[in-house]
Design a protein around this nucleic acid. Structure first.
Lengths: 249, 249
DNA sequence: CGCTCGTTTGATATATTTCAAGAATTGTGG
DNA sequence: CCACAATTCTTGAAATATATCAAACGAGCG
């Protein structure tokens, strides 16, 4: 956990800067956003499907995820979030939430009023563009997940998820592929890759038996990155991490 | 097909107006966009995965779709587009395409240079916001597709796809649920719902036998809308069609 | 130490795929 | 408008990946 006095909007500025160059005035405007810092417990829902969200949630430290429940109570996870992610710009901008947002671990967050986000995006085009890019990349990840769930078998799907997670952690400077935390039980993983937890268990064991990964509790070590990439049919292009300021005109 | 002299950017203005009120100056700026009108044949690719797209494509008349090919050549479709859709803002804004964009039928399109789109979005916040909302709603549809493909069985999935298509056609004033065209063979449908064409065939027959729909060639009549909605576990909220200018501050 | 939650394993069930072949429909050139 | 080719649709039988059910095991925790 981050100590209270260290809670700032710096992670947001870093994230936006990644997508578009911000002027000093833009940066100042971001810092001037009226935010509320909060510590949320694992399992806390920031937004429920059907809500009219009043805030967007900047994850300063911790993991969160978004999901829907379909008929018969089956759960589908479609995104995982980590330090620095501006979770759920989407629900809040659209006005009516179409899915749930839940903390995966205890988290430090900054709650930013939707109105303030709309205003800054509108008044400061660079900031708006950067936020737009953020949502565009999330869209790209959704597309990859559709393909992953729709057209890949269990082993490939799971390997792909691990690759993506490792890659994003690295980009966020939160770990290395050599060893990192996936803060999800096999049950959660199964809801992210649309399988049963039983089957996830078997596949994970198989990947381990093949010497590709080693998993104990929620800690994963990648023993053979190339093997994992191969197993996961993984091509990181869709993450658009190599983008340098595409928003710059 | 629209006769050449009737090709204008009006569908784009209508679409943007749906999301954000545009001033006369905004509208004029949109009309002043440097566009190229083209007629594209079914099967034509506007963008290939990996390209650096130079244009975004406004569909004036016709159907298009977006997809990826995963290892072993399996295809996954993740969006269908119809008259008035601004196809692939996403690839063009992100700079590097992460999927293919292909015409499903012969189409009239307006090609708009990416630079012009970036510029108008940046210079005219209302226009930028409206475009952003367009991409946000597409994101919402992606999420629903993930849940649909991941957590629903074949019958539900297919019924859901038909409901969505009917609903969007109606919103675009292109048909009624009572009878409309899905310009896709069963093979294509199978790539959209992640099934085999053989299985799609059987499910379609079953839905027909149950009196829910009637399909002949590529024409579908919905005989029992409530039954189809029930069969498809369909809740249109995720389409955000009832939104009235959420972007208005 | 006992409880709870997560993992592991085995046996069985089933939805969907795969393979294959024939029928129907659509498209094309003459 | 016909004949032929090429898709697309349809159906059946067999194969298989994954789900389901059930039970035991292990680890963290108050």
């Amino acid at each position: 956990m981050t100590s209270p006095e260290r809670l700032t909007l710096q992670p947001l500025i870093d994230k936006l800067q990644f997508w578009a160059p911000l002027s000093d005035a833009d940066e100042a405007a971001v810092r001037a956003l009226p935010v509320t810092f909060r510590r949320l417990k694992a399992g806390h829902y920031v937004v429920w499907d059907g809500d009219r969200p009043q805030h967007s949630c900047l994850l300063i430290h911790g993991f969160a995820y978004r999901h829907k429940i379909v008929r018969e109570g089956k759960k589908q996870i479609f995104s995982l979030h980590m330090d620095g992610d501006l979770v759920d710009l989407q629900n809040s901008l659209l006005g009516r939430a179409d899915h749930n947002v839940e903390m995966l671990t205890d988290c430090d967050v900054a709650l930013i009023p939707v109105d303030a986000i709309r205003k800054i995006a509108f008044d400061r085009p660079s900031v708006g563009m950067a936020m737009w890019y953020e949502t565009l990349v999330e869209g790209s990840i959704f597309r990859e997940w559709i393909a992953n769930i729709g057209r890949r078998d269990a082993r490939t799907r799971i390997a792909h998820l691990i690759c993506e997670f490792a890659m994003r952690l690295k980009a966020a400077k939160l770990g290395t592929p050599e060893g990192f935390m996936i803060p999800m039980s096999q049950e959660w993983i199964s809801d992210a890759v649309s399988l049963t937890s039983v089957h996830v268990n078997r596949v994970l064991k198989a990947l381990q038996a093949d010497g590709v990964i080693h998993r104990s509790r929620r800690w994963i070590e990648v023993r053979d990155w190339d093997g994992l990439v191969e197993a996961g049919d993984f091509n990181p292009a869709y993450l658009h991490l190599d983008q340098v300021h595409p928003a710059a005109i």
